[in-house]
Amino acid sequence: MTAVRCVDLCKTYIQGDTEIKALDHLSIDVDAGGFVCLSSPSGGGKTTLLNAIGGLDIPDSGEVWIEGERIDTKSKGQLAELRLRKIGFVFQAYNLIPVLTARENVEFVMQVQGVPAAERGELAINVLKEVGLAGLEDRRPAQMSGGQQQRVAVARAVVSRPALILADEPTANLDSKTSDGLMDLFSELNSAHNTTFIIATHDQRVMAHIPRLIRMLDGRIVDDIQQHAP
């Protein structure tokens, strides 16, 4: 089954007098349970593609399909509902809500989804343990390191078992050890829950870790290789 399908996507930004083609007739298919790395130099279009797949940005033309459902024609409210139910996000920075504790941040999406308090509390504790943050549940983001915060964000992204997780430079602010730990965690979750991961990065260590590598340049795919088996 195809988890993500992008067909002939175009997105152009105007910067001063210059037109920047962030996506240039780009098409891509990602199977359910796929583990994909998007790589490009800065400005290559990987974040724009990730945002288009996540319904955070609407392409100028082309189609985006998630699990057989076209999303680029949906309203803001419908896109919000789609993100809530099907997609988990991990951003490069500023991933957490500062006034909530680690556990509350993890519970946030489930609470908006309407998951009962007892159930979401148990899930949040378990997933925080899974990402190695047992004992830090009641800490607020300001009381945690960057790596710990990123792991809370991962926990939040995976806790409600979305079909798709989109991560934009998730290791950018992490040291190599924490970065490796995070990628191992992604791999475990991918294999354990068949969750589809699309990770945008220019970190060579991350690229080496991920089975399918898609290289982009100027909004186009220049290389799409299966590096190794998942």
Binding site: A80, R83, L84
Partner: peptide, 14 residues
């Protein structure tokens, strides 16, 4: 940014 994050996570504008 926090509001953007909540919107990205699926909170509705309303």
């Amino acid at each position: 940014r926090e509001i953007g994050l909540m919107l990205a996570l699926g909170m509705k504008p309303s």
